[in-house]
Design a protein around this nucleic acid. Structure first.
Length: 587
RNA sequence: GGGGCCGUAGCUCAAUUGGUUAGAGUACCAGACUGUCGAUCUGGAUGUUGCGGGUUCGAUUCCCGUCGGCCUCGCCA
């Protein structure tokens, strides 16, 4: 049983502490045994302090010190001393001093860890996740999780200051088959019935507005049973908020203030507000996607008009069947080889593009294997319109709008990274606004909500709803950082009449609307205030602010791509008795 | 559900065209060493080449299946 209790942390002692007697606890990190003298880097969450064992200060503890191995847990008591001249370590915050140990307490041994507990150990994610307790012991991971904590703490303080109330919403709730697949939880006391884990607290926060909590927020776990990506986990955390008696600008201002506060307090950086706003149409036209990376150019241009004066069948037939021909000017890529262009063609093929037409810009103008199908005048127009100079490479995709946009959006990012056009030191925020309210699903032959079915249409578009639903704009807004959607929100529908009209357009009849969302429709009847809100992906935000590209690097216990936890081995089979109680049988 | 990459010592990797004793660095163990901080020096031990099958005189290498990890398309209101 240890009698030593720490007086300081391992990151605390400085020159001014010399001669004081201290006790430190932590993990033995680097052990350097010189035979007659042993140096150990003692590590805890706060830093590293070098402790020195000298046989002159007690043989008993020196012999014990010889038994120490990496990751043994110890407490030491001793005297702080300035390091001898020339031996201080400028890489360590505590590098001016060391502790001469008088008493050593071995609190616990450790097996040899499967990997070194250091920042740059270069170990596979698989092994790190299996022994996450060791991985999280690395200072790097401790800094990341602490950063995550500070972001959340700042969010809470900021919103509290603005009178927001943190209110918890249920985790066991009702399945809403719209949107992502639900995680289901069987109910023992209601055999054959299921709860769902929330994809977001969307409906509850609207209900809270009806209940008069005009400023709500929550840092809340959300669940979606869909396939994983580096940026996507089945459970993730959202900063969710909702306000009453507001319009788009109020929400946007609160969030801009929040981001500015986070940058100031946590990153100690300035961020310029307000953030630029770009319409959905402009985003799709110039960047091919609704979350454009505005850190670089290479804008997409529509050449459907210009190339009508050509004999290139691929282009002409695409236009005839309602497709588009669009392209980008890959500035300075005129030297690309046949193979380089083949690689780009293969790249866009992933997104459905059947080909990639190209022109190189030379002294004589545009050259290409397909140039012969284009009149000289058209080639000149093309070059001028694409703002192409000698040495540039023009790349075009002809296809259905969806394929053209996605291919070029990805190609643009690919070229941006490949040619180092992106300043990775900047944080570029923008709002994407004026989204369409509906999207047409070709496979299902029906309209779908682009955002979600509770998003309010622009009032001026209300008359268009039934005749031209695709022309109706939504009062929705997405926050984009460096080409990644940080989150989105909208002003909601607050009258049952409009909500019913939207449901009807989505093919949800009154009966099923009542079954699925009856409680919301009921609530809207009893004096629902106008309201709106937003939700931001916290893990995603932290990842971006730390300039990482994998969300698992900032989540303590993430899942693998197959949605398993390598440490706990969840999910796992359960006792047949458990299933029996739930009235469930596996197939 | 589709496409791709990977799996060799505790860890990170190598191993010629398929070739006979599967190597290196590091970690580990032992010894030496009173100013190291990636300690150093000397020595030592370490393999179901993910698993199963096939082809072959011979498989880490080629083929099929399977398990696991990663990337990606679809999916993610």
């Amino acid at each position: 049983m240890s009698t030593l209790k720490r007086t300081h942390t391992c990151g605390q002692l400085r020159g001014k502490d010399v001669k004081s007697t201290v006790t430190l606890s932590g993990w033995a990190s680097s052990i350097r045994d010189h035979g007659g003298l042993i140096f150990i880097d003692l590590r805890d969450r706060y830093g590293v302090t070098q402790v020195v064992f000298n046989p002159d200060r007690g043989k008993e503890f020196f012999e014990l010190a010889q038994q120490l191995r990496p990751e043994y847990v110890i407490a030491v008591q001793g005297q702080v001393a300035a390091r001898p001249f020339g031996t201080s370590n400028p890489n360590l915050a505590t590098g001016e001093i060391e502790v001469y140990v008088d008493t050593l307490d071995l609190l616990n041994k450790s097996e040899t860890p499967p990997f070194d507990i250091v920042d740059d150990n270069n170990v596979s994610l698989e092994l790190r996740l299996k022994h996450r307790y060791l991985d999280l012991r690395r200072p790097l991971m401790q800094r990341r999780l602490t950063f995550h904590h500070k972001i959340c703490q700042t969010i809470r303080e900021y919103l509290d200051r603005l009178n927001f109330v943190d209110i918890e919403t249920p985790v066991l709730t009702k399945s809403t088959p719209e949107g992502a697949r639900d995680y289901l939880v069987p109910s023992r006391v209601n055999l054959g019935k299921f709860y769902a884990l929330p994809q977001s607290p969307q409906l509850f926060k609207q209900i809270l507005m009806v209940a008069g909590y005009d400023r709500y927020f929550q840092i809340v776990r959300c669940f979606r049973d869909e396939d994983l990506r580096a940026q996507r986990q089945p459970e993730f955390t959202q900063m969710d908020m909702e306000m009453s008696f507001v319009d788009e600008n109020d929400i946007i201002q609160v969030i801009e203030g929040l981001m500015a506060t986070i940058f100031e307090r946590v990153l100690e950086k300035k961020v310029t507000v307000p953030f630029p706003r770009i319409s959905y149409d402009e985003a799709m036209t110039s960047y091919g996607c609704d979350a454009p990376d505005l850190r670089f150019g290479l804008k997409i241009k529509n050449v459907s008009d210009i190339i009508q004066k050509s004999e290139f069948k691929v282009f002409l037939e695409t236009l005839k069947s309602g497709g588009l021909v669009r392209g980008i000017n890959a500035v300075g890529c005129g030297h690309y080889s046949r193979k380089d262009i083949d690689d780009l063609t293969a790249f866009v093929a992933q997104f459905g593009a059947k080909g990639l037409a190209w022109f190189k810009v030379e002294d004589s103008g545009l050259t290409s294997s397909i140039a012969k199908f284009f009149p000289a005048e058209t080639l000149q127009k093309l070059q001028a319109y694409m703002e192409a100079k000698k040495g540039d490479l023009l790349l075009f995709v002809a296809d259905k709008p969806k394929v053209v946009n996605q291919s070029l959006a990805q190609l643009r990012l690919h070229l941006g990274h490949k040619n180092k056009l992106i300043d990775t030191t900047v944080f570029n925020f923008s709002w994407v606004v004026d989204f369409p309210l509906f999207d047409y699903n070709e496979d299902m032959k029906r309209y779908e909500a682009l955002h979600h079915p509770f998003t309010s249409p622009h009032p001026k578009d209300l008359p268009l709803m039934e005749e031209k639903p695709l022309d109706v704009k939504a009062r929705a807004y997405d926050l984009v950082l460096n080409g990644v959607e940080l989150g989105g929100g909208s002003i909601r529908i607050h009258t049952p009449e409009i909500q019913k009209r939207v449901f009807r357009l989505l093919g949800i009849d009154d009966e099923s609307a009542h079954k699925k969302f009856g409680f919301l429709l009921d609530a809207l009847k009893y004096g629902a205030p106008p309201h709106g809100g937003i939700a931001l992906g916290v893990d995603r935000m932290v990842t971006l602010l730390l300039q990482l590209d994998d969300i698992r690097e900032v989540i303590a216990f993430p899942k693998t791509q197959k949605a398993t936890c390598l440490m706990t081995e969840a999910p796992s089979e359960v006792d047949p008795q458990q299933l029996k109680e739930l009235g469930i049988r596996t197939l």
